[in-house]
Amino acid sequence: MGKKVIIFEDDMDLALIFSFLFEEERWDVKTFENCDCAVGICKEYSPDLILMDNWIPTIGGKEAIRQLKGDPQLKNIPVILVSANNNIKEVFANSGADAYLAKPFDLEDLLVLARQLIQIKVCQTDLLLQLSHHEIP
């Protein structure tokens, strides 16, 4: 079953590039030009991965991530922060995102990152499942 990714990116070129890349990998892709309804959108689609541009109308990527990570239902979905900022590390450090991608970027890097994050999420879910089934002796 294909993975679902939601891309919040106001630059249409980049949105197109991301879509192409993930669709080529047979992912289910949804793109949005602003992040104001990020929580609602993500609840509707339950994505496996979220790509969030830092500088996106109107509340900004940072605020959107804060909202996403503050939601118990969505907090475990990995989020990649995408930014052209030179200090992307600092922006990332305070964002709550799971990984970052500096513009411009290497597509292959992005794919590797995406797969790794999903892998981690799967592992986490499995672990939680195992724990919940594990009888305490």
């Binding site: 630059d11 980049l14 991301f18 890349l21 080529e24 900022n85 513009k103 411009p104 970027f105 290497d106």
Partner: peptide
Amino acid sequence: IGLASHELKTPLASINGYLQILSR
């Protein structure tokens, strides 16, 4: 500085992205 960072890099990122897609 902030603007330049964004404004310069955004097209670069697009060019870079398209080129990579093409090469794929």
